[in-house]
Design a protein around this nucleic acid. Structure first.
Lengths: 333, 333
DNA sequence: TTTTTTTGCTAAATATATTTAGTAGATTGC
DNA sequence: GCAATCTACTAAATATATTTAGCAAAAAAA
């Protein structure tokens, strides 16, 4: 257990002041007119003894923790864990670390966690806001903490966000089903006012209206059990004699598949929102509206870092196109 | 943007010293003989103004960051993202935060990340060690940083670990296939000396030897492309005319399913290690050896917190039983 | 009454950096 | 030749807590 080297040890060893060492280590040698000779001497010595500044002391003084807070709906959902992986990689490349947590659509938990992260003085937030978070989000803004919303946003508060073009994605998916000759097409969604859900509903409606056919909409409770959800999905599909179904999230589609498999109901044509390993392998393979995680996370981190470094002059609100990936489940034989 | 309240503000407002406030806030009022009256007065005031100590200053002074470092193989793998979710929840309950990252079986990246986390002075590590990390793990131990290995361990270094009983899980799975009347049973694994892979091989071997039948073993490279893996799996299964296959990881099984689906090869009987949403829904549904994530993470956090708080008197090495969940894929019709 | 102990609290040191304000000496300007 | 400017640094303040060592007054013991 070797003792940590301090900046004062370096100063003492080289017979110079702590200030000088600090300037050199923070790339202010030129600005502060430290001679090249001394700069080199310090840098060489620092390298030799492998000095690393204490991040805590540094953060305490500068107010920058180089930590970002990532709050997603559920890190165990493959969509979000994929997002988390991309974000993590990009953040590390830029010298930031990520602390994360799942909010599980629990308003109380979310508020507590955001407060906890603020107490920890994260340099910025990435949040997929669940409902009821208007005040909290607004509070973050008021405290001037850099923030980017993700996957959905809060219309009543003007913030940066990066989301997918859910309305268009949903429209294209529905149109695809309509053009396949399906008449009775249902949408399975959630009782949720989150923007992504509203947009997916809107897109579905727009396509249905365009084709002048009746719409069938079933919303499930966020907190209903898997068994309840499955039963409701089955009923909805069977009772309405649906030809095709658009699922508003990947896990709704998974629930749907389970429900229909269990009851040996023959599968209607279907499209799901968001990719899932299952979908490529399922028999039949499942058509999806896929979000461009690569681009979403790139813009996300880019926006957040820009805001942190003060380079962002105005609010940045991006909508990234989705891609309809047609597989077997939506093709009429 | 209201200004932060400092401990000195409180002291000033109440006309007492900073020391006294600090004692009271750190539950040392009794020990330091602060009067009950004053204690209450301070606590009430703190509550009123909503004072929260600056974590950075606190950490700098005490050396405790209340942050744990979680290093997993791949956070996008559903097994690990599930683990991450459980760990996160338990950690927060105990007042700890998690910074995480994926090591992607990249030795260099892993070493860099561990060093980074050490520089950040995490209070403890949770690591699924990839190969070549003996020295780094040993280094963590030498620096007296609390550590629990997970999913696999490093035999050459004596550390805490929590792993599943992979040997037994593999043995049971193989035996189950043997008892189903399958003769030619193959194991698909990885070129890896990690303990969990060795144990899964051992368990397979033990069962095969017990039944006195020839074993078929195929190992894939960690870094081979999906296409390569798939081709090799297909060849292995077809060339050896296998009746059944045991896959040593969930993603190998997924690759296998993709490979066999693409080439319309009829599916042999199969069992996979680790659960995956896909497996319940696949047709046929896939039999798995399931790890008890609930118990694994409970023991994990419990052990780590015990070590951090100095309550752990000796190294703790736990092996948790797996469960064989029999589904359609392994049952002989 | 004097000494000892206890009570209830505080001043100053500490953790480890960054940053502001300033200084001594050398050089330049006029 | 003397003021003004520049060069190359540094002392001290700062960020915000925790912790050690110690002090004055009150109570108890002698």
């Amino acid at each position: 257990m070797k003792k940590r080297v301090l900046i004062s040890d370096i100063a003492k060893a080289l017979g110079i002041s702590v200030t000088t060492v600090s300037f050199i280590l923070n790339d202010k040698a030129k600005e502060k007119r430290i001679s090249d000779a001394l700069t080199k001497r310090v840098l060489d010595y620092v390298n030799k003894v492998g000095y690393k500044p204490n991040q805590l002391a540094k953060s305490l003084r500068t107010g920058q923790t180089k930590i970002l807070g990532l709050l997603v709906e559920d890190i165990a959902n493959p969509f979000f864990s994929n997002v988390a992986k991309h974000i993590e990689r990009r953040a590390y490349e830029t010298g930031y670390h990520i602390i994360y947590c799942s909010m599980d659509n629990d308003e109380h938990k979310a508020k507590e966690l955001i407060q906890l992260f603020m107490d920890r003085q994260v340099d910025g937030f990435i949040i997929t806001p669940s409902e009821g978070l208007e005040d909290t989000i607004s509070n973050i803004k008021q405290n001037n903490i850099p923030l980017v919303l993700f996957d959905r946003f809060v219309p009543s508060v003007e913030t940066n966000y990066v989301v997918s073009d859910n309305r268009r994605g949903s429209y294209e998916a529905t149109k695809h089903l309509l053009e396949g000759g399906n008449k009775r097409i249902g949408l399975i969604s959630l009782y949720s006012n989150q923007t992504q859900m509203r947009d997916r509903l809107d897109g579905y409606m727009e396509a249905m209206d365009e084709f002048r056919v009746q719409s069938f909409i079933k919303k499930l409770n966020l907190d209903s059990s898997e068994a309840e959800s499955q039963e409701q999905i089955r009923e909805f599909v069977v009772d309405n004699k649906l030809d095709a179904v658009l699922f508003a999230t990947n896990y709704l589609a998974v629930d749907g598949l389970k429900a229909l498999k269990q009851h040996k109901t023959s599968l209607p044509k279907m499209v799901a929102f968001d990719e899932h390993t299952l979908f490529k392998l399922h028999d039949p393979s499942i058509t999806v509206v896929s979000q461009d995680i690569e681009q979403l996370t790139r813009e996300l981190i880019h926006t957040l870092i820009a805001e942190i470094s003060g380079k962002l002059k105005e609010v940045r609100q991006l909508t990234i196109p989705c891609q309809l990936i047609v597989r077997e489940s939506s093709i009429s034989s």
